[in-house]
Write a protein that binds this DNA or RNA. Structure first.
Lengths: 262, 262
DNA sequence: CGCTATGTTGCATTTTACGCAGCAACTCTG
DNA sequence: CAGAGTTGCTGCGTAAAATGCAACATAGCG
């Protein structure tokens, strides 16, 4: 039976503290105490005590001399020490398996690492193989389906900041070498929901991948399928694309919350 | 005057919530409700309400089906959306400048990015240059002073996991090519406090760098100086090393808290 | 040098979070 | 399979803890 009074399970002050963390993290400028108080619609003194607690615990920090708040070292520590990729693998592996068997081609899971995409899990068509195939391999971001899926939300200026303004290295005839073209490709991926690789990195290989998004649309990984071009024609893009997108969305939902429904 | 009652500025439930976040983040396994209750020495019901609040806000999450807690997507979002390197640059730049003028050689600031070290700021000997020199450059981790400083806390098995078991690529005669030697080098860096580069990557260049550590000893960046070997002999290591270490420590302290002293 | 805006502390009030008790689901264990 | 022991979850009365207010402190500004 559902709880009669669901509100009683809410700790107000903790909730408020988390709201503060969120707003500080999303703000590009340091946040003043007044802004916090206004945001939560509480007295300045209460805001002060909440912020003070967060600071003492290292979750917030004040730039030397200033009295504004920025994220503190604890957030740094927490996010780094935690093995996100392991969690992603755990949640995604069953879905990866499902995808591979449904389509009967190799399915991959990738995350971003620096300026590359890193394959962290894969399931082959005929049999399940945990540590084999391309798992562990690093590939460029701008000329692979997984890489481009991971870049999907980047705007032209972001791309320029990350790859510089010069032309990109060409691997094959179809490699995208200009930032402008890459940016256009990204907007196409956002629209369609999935990215493809027309032998832009390695020859005679087709790949289709979709970004895995969590709350706030942040892209945390990509999932997709690869096959020799001979077995994987362009006609299959719509059908496979929809399948892959659906799987990616489901993984994202699992990661985002899991209100623990069955 | 110091507050008469410093405890009154402390919000208990928020503090407890943060403690939960910390313990979940540091634990390798998912954490059960009972463990949380025991840790904080509070009733299970209170622990439940705290954890429940954290979960509804996305800071914790339950693996599908299970009732244990792991870090949630909000932590993911927060840590990624925040521009850490920008913050590091802001805090470290004055110190970098000081270091460069004191020693009168180029000083660099670097962070880890994937399997490389990325230079994010530099100050040249004679003049301050914000966006020039090696800023933006990626260099290998295992054969540069900055890279090795960033790796300092890694144990042999970590290194093996990150670089594979094969030999490392050789750039010069003095490049370290075995994981075992690299591990030994790391323990030396931990002992001394700083790393050096004996022309292991590029020729005729010496470099000395120290890791920047925040709370829990997590390494978040490195700071160091570079010079042609002709001007920078081995004799200078102790003196320069101590200087660089002191600067690195101060930056770490600034980042870790800033109890806002002057 | 006032004046306002913001940060910080003490204190009285009452909201809020706590522990207790009890139920439900699940796991051992014989 | 029964019964005992864990653990997760909810309702409720109470006490403690968080809140808002007022006052003080400090910084920025004209």
């Amino acid at each position: 039976m559902p709880p009669k009074n669901p509100q009683s399970q809410f700790i107000q002050s903790l909730d408020r503290g988390l709201t503060i963390l969120n707003s500080v993290a999303h703000s590009k400028q340091p946040v003043s105490l007044k802004e916090i108080a206004d945001l939560l619609d509480i007295d300045r003194s209460s805001a002060f005590r909440l912020a003070h607690t967060l600071r003492r615990r290292g979750f917030l920090s004040c730039p030397p001399g200033k009295k504004d708040y920025v994220l503190g070292s604890s957030m740094w520590t927490l996010s780094r020490q935690y093995d996100w990729s392991n969690m992603l693998v755990k949640v995604a592996h069953p879905e990866l398996k499902l995808l591979a068997t449904q389509i009967n081609e190799t399915a991959h899971l990738a995350i971003r690492e620096g300026k590359s995409a890193l394959f962290i899990d894969s399931v082959h068509a005929t049999h399940v193989i945990a540590v084999a195939g391309q798992t562990g391999e690093l590939v460029p971001l701008y000329c692979t389906a997984h890489g481009k899926a991971l870049l999907a939300d980047a705007e032209e200026e972001d791309l320029r900041g990350q790859f510089g303004s010069g032309p990109l290295r060409r691997y094959t005839k179809s490699t995208i070498t200009s930032i402008k073209a890459l940016s256009k490709e990204c907007s196409g991926i956002r629209r369609r929901g999935f990215a493809t690789d027309e032998s832009e990195y390695g020859p005679e290989m087709r790949c289709l991948a979709a970004p895995i998004r969590i709350t706030d649309d942040l892209i945390v990984g990509s999932i997709g399928i690869s096959a020799p071009a001979s077995r994987f024609s362009k006609d299959m893009y719509p059908a496979y694309g929809e399948k892959v997108c659906r799987v990616a969305d489901r993984i994202g939902e699992f990661l985002s919350n899991t209100e623990a429904k069955s």
